[in-house]
């Protein structure tokens, strides 16, 4: 898995901290707030002009400057299903859409915790996945809303 900057996460996406490229006072203050290697963080929202950035760590919310956030390297915990290439396997974490979407997917057996394998990904066309004994075709818009954890 590749690491990206915390600032590059999408709203709501969770990640694990891999490396903090900061020294001195600021580094210590981040550590005091729980931002240490291996800690799980979630990007909550970014203010309209890109600054500040709100994140959640160890159960509480923090507001950080953009230049600080962009020096924190993370490994995303959840990715969007649509980003996975053919042959990958992943476990469903959660859904980004509304209830109607969740209902339809859960009728088809696509629930959090379920393991899926990507057979083909024709992005921006649809993708073909297998789960249990069935094969499902999901449009890219739908696969965009499915958050998964790669295995």
């Amino acid at each position: 898995m590749t690491t990206i900057r915390l600032s590059e996460l999408e709203n709501g996406q969770k990640a694990r901290i891999v490396k903090i490229n900061l020294e001195g006072d600021i580094r210590r203050r981040l550590s005091d707030m729980g931002l240490v290697n291996d800690a799980e963080v979630q990007l909550l929202r970014v203010a309209p002009l890109g600054d500040p950035v709100e994140i959640r760590v160890k159960g509480y919310e923090l507001s950080l400057r953009k230049e600080v956030v962009s020096e924190i390297e993370v490994e995303p915990v959840n990715t969007r299903l649509v980003k996975l290439a053919a042959g990958k396997t992943a476990r469903i974490s959660s859904f980004g859409g509304g209830t109607e979407l969740i209902r339809r997917l859960s009728d088809l057996g696509l629930n959090p915790g379920v393991e899926v394998t990507i057979v083909e990904n024709h992005y921006p066309g649809a993708m073909l996945i297998t789960l249990g004994g069935s094969r499902l075709v999901l449009s890219s818009e739908l696969a965009e809303q499915v958050l998964v954890r790669e295995i």
Partner: peptide
């Protein structure tokens, strides 16, 4: 908006 689309493929 283009709709979501999901379909099962038979064996």
């Amino acid at each position: 908006e283009s709709s979501h689309f999901v379909m099962e493929l038979p064996s």
